[in-house]
């Protein structure tokens, strides 16, 4: 194989390895769960994307065909990583955080995780009628 293509593949693999390492390193270094969420969900996903670009170039150079499965893996990872980060944040807020530590949103209702069912129904009815029900 050409030396430049080999260098390109090696560069992508090293870049991916660096991001995966940094992602997990951030998970053990930072003090709180909400800070620890940032590392794995973003840096690790990008690292796997780097590996996949390297593998696409590798299989394109050796076997001469373009395989789309790597793009599909990256696509699935980019779609599901925010979902898991959001879920973990929400479950942590529900279990550990008290609502007084968070800033309040504009309007009269709090955040969705702490709201009761009556609050949500009242908010929906107020939006539907467009008027102020509680005065």
């Amino acid at each position: 194989m050409n030396i430049y293509i080999e260098a390109l593949i090696a560069f992508h693999i090293i870049l991916g390895a660096f991001f995966i390492f940094v992602g997990s390193f951030g998970m053990i270094k930072l003090p709180e769960l909400m800070s620890r969420l940032h590392g794995p969900s973003k840096a690790t996903t990008l690292g796997v994307g780097g590996f996949l670009v390297g593998s696409m170039i590798h299989f394109g150079a050796t076997e001469g065909r373009i395989s789309i499965q790597e793009i599909l893996i990256t696509f699935f990872l980019f779609i599901t990583a925010p979902v898991t980060a959001h879920f973990i944040a929400k479950a942590y807020m529900h279990a550990e955080l008290k609502p007084e530590k968070l800033p309040k949103p504009d309007g009269r209702y709090g955040w969705n995780t702490y709201a009761s069912v009556e609050d949500v129904k009242l908010a929906a009815r107020e939006q539907a009628t467009g008027s102020d029900l509680q005065g």
Partner: peptide
């Protein structure tokens, strides 16, 4: 959530 540095956690009730 994909943009590094921010994680969207919750939506307000309204």
């Amino acid at each position: 959530t994909l943009t590094p540095g921010t994680v969207a956690s919750d939506l307000s009730a309204d």
